[in-house]
Design a protein around this nucleic acid. Structure first.
Length: 298
DNA sequence: ACCCCGGTTTCACTAATTAA
DNA sequence: TTAATTAGTGAAACCGGGGT
């Protein structure tokens, strides 16, 4: 009957349901078993369980539904957000339950990600507001004031970015949120029409680097070692990734993207695990990078 | 000692779905 | 189509903990 019990119950229900759908009878049984195991009483009435479902939905954005023909509850998961919500929920619980500086859980060290501004920025985008903020170009040293008309926010590799029209420079700019300070949402009606489709803007970009004016989308074919191929299969480089060959010698994939600097760096980061099949220009620039790297070492 | 609050249970009822 | 079963909802009462 404590808050702790409620949270524990939510966690248990979600993790079990995530594993497989369960009927109320089964859920009740699981809660009973766990109550015997732990020193908490997690058993509740079915009515309360209904409220839990509602609470879980509003707290974590995870929606539990019932399949009436099978009489089973299950987690409705057909969106990316739902998946994200579950991830966030896992981490949340890890941090809560593994509390008071347990040495058994090691989190990656990271700086604040600027996510505290996410809400404001989303609001500004929806309501055609401008953003005024200070931007630290190089960590903490110099700060410049920026005025931006935000168009979209995007997450790339655990970092959030806001993309918009710079009101002073009158061009499209990208700012990582973790270097934004003192953000203000300001009314700025006149800077409206920006001719950009957020859906397609980054469609063929590897990360958040926008292609140059004259840059073309290229068909990139890569051959990964079997070992590295497993990573590539589970976490595709790009949503256009297509598997051409998958055997015990190589994983060959095709991507349709702009070859930008960050993409080249990504390929370099796995060293000899990847071979560029096409285009030749990319293979050349990889070779060139390695050649320079060799020269740097005495 | 007392009250208040929030989570919980109980109960009565409705809605949806399946079985007959 | 109807009856039966079960999920879902609302209201009221209950109860334990925390604060005054």
């Amino acid at each position: 009957m404590s808050v702790r019990e409620t949270i524990l119950r939510h966690k248990l229900v979600i993790s079990k349901l995530r594993h497989k759908p369960l009927s109320w009878i089964e859920i009740d049984r699981i809660l009973q078993e766990q109550s015997a195991l732990l020193e908490y009483n997690l058993t509740v009435s079915q009515r309360q369980f209904q409220r839990d479902i509602a609470d879980i939905s509003s707290l974590y954005g995870i929606s539990i539904e019932n399949n009436r023909s099978k009489k089973q509850y299950f987690i409705q998961q057909d969106t990316e957000e739902a998946e994200r919500a579950l991830d966030a929920f896992d981490v949340f619980n890890l941090m809560r339950l593994g509390n008071n500086s347990s040495k058994k859980i090691v989190f990656e060290q990271r700086r604040p990600r600027g996510t505290e501004y996410l809400g404001d920025i989303v609001y500004a985008i929806h309501n055609d507001r401008a953003l005024y903020f200070d931007y630290c170009k190089y960590y903490e040293t110099e700060v410049e004031h920026r005025r931006l008309f935000p168009i979209l926010i995007k997450e790339v590799r655990n970092r959030w970015y806001v993309i918009g029209q710079d009101l002073d420079k009158d061009s499209l700019r990208i700012f990582p949120l973790d270097r934004i300070l003192a953000l203000e949402v300001v009314k700025a009606g006149k800077f409206k029409s920006v001719d950009i489709d957020p859906e397609t803007l980054f469609e063929h970009s590897f990360g958040i680097i926008l292609p140059r004016e004259d840059q073309r989308i290229e068909e990139v074919i890569l051959s990964y070692s079997e070992f590295q191929g497993n990573y590539i299969k589970s976490l595709p480089l790009h949503h256009t990734q297509e598997i051409l060959v998958d055997n015990d010698e190589e994983l060959r994939v095709k991507l349709n993207i702009y070859v930008t600097h960050d993409f080249v760096m990504e390929l370099l980061s796995v060293g000899a695990e990847v071979k560029v099949i096409a285009p030749q220009s990319l293979a050349d620039s990889i070779k060139e990078e390695y050649r320079k790297a060799l020269q740097h070492q005495s």
